[in-house]
Write a protein that binds this DNA or RNA. Structure first.
Lengths: 172, 172
DNA sequence: TATTGTTATACTCTATAACTATA
DNA sequence: TATAGTTATAGAGTATAACAATA
């Protein structure tokens, strides 16, 4: 088929067989980018408001939805229930969150932000929008839309790939 | 310019002022995606070969470049020197890596994979290529190229945004 | 029996600080 | 004085298991 001298777009040469160029490997690239981006954002609120990433996620959920149970927060944020429990305890201790026992099912409680919690939320939200805007300032509208779409696709796809691995040993 | 009734692509309504939709927030989305993707890949090699993510990164670097110092590995992989040191020690203990002292500067050593290390590398590389291929199987070539380009852009941009924060308190 | 949530515990990755041995 | 690398230690974030209270 292709001769060994077929023209290439003068770009980079393909790596030799059996070699992986780590800097081009998707999981690695995503990991580095996500770490820098999310640590950069965490720095904006962690020192100023004394809250951790899990606490921020709980605040963000309750700012967005007003009232949720711990279980619902865990499901929506991919946080383990132990992390949610600890974050909720800490936020309550600092007066940013209040619990209201569900009288219809006393195992769970409805969580919501206190006034103090809402004030912090109201301060962080513009920081968040501004941070995302600065990060994507050099992207065209088309690029931004494409990136959102592709991240969503990869996110769905990663679940499928993840689960197909899980079943590798089971289907035999 | 635009009237308040300009047509919208029947997509989602914009969120109310002062609210952040966490599921649409870039740092959060990147974090969730990267965690799932890189854990999914780690699962492919960690149990089978008994190596951690930092160890894999060292192996990947030495598979790609044959010989590097610990410092060079740290710079290329964004790993802290303490992590590199520990990963190198473990890999050496398991016979996957060897050190050759630099006689011109005895503080450092040239690291390279042993035959056993190269065998593991040679087994993981196809797993890596296959994993990335499965993950991006549903993307068009154009999407794949766009995603690579945008990730690179965001990566550069994140350094700039990160550093501009660093200087916030200094320029006053 | 199953589910919500808590606590104890441990593991991974990361980071700081103090150190050594070189340069 | 500065640099390459090691070790001790601590801090996030995550996960497992055992448990209490409730359904």
């Amino acid at each position: 088929m292709a001769s060994s001298t077929r023209p290439r777009a003068a770009a980079k040469a393909p790596p030799p067989e059996g070699v992986l160029v780590l800097e081009e490997f998707l999981p690695y690239r995503l990991n580095v980018l996500a770490t820098i981006v999310s640590q950069g954002f965490a720095r904006l609120y962690s020192e100023r408001f004394g809250i951790s990433i899990p606490e921020w996620r709980v605040i963000a959920m309750l700012g967005q939805h007003r009232t949720l149970t711990s279980k619902a927060i865990g499901e929506r944020t991919h946080m383990h229930k132990t992390m949610v429990s600890r974050a909720v305890t800490d936020l309550e201790r600092h007066g940013l969150l209040s619990r209201l026992a569900n009288r219809a099912d006393k195992r769970e409680a409805f969580l919501s932000l206190t006034d103090a919690g809402r004030r912090i939320y109201a301060e962080i939200v513009p920081l968040a929008h501004d941070y995302a805007a600065r990060l994507t300032a050099e992207l065209s509208d088309a690029d931004r839309a494409a990136f959102d779409r592709i991240v969503s696709l990869l996110r769905e796809r990663s679940d499928i790939v993840f689960m197909s691995e899980r079943n590798d040993g089971v289907t035999g």
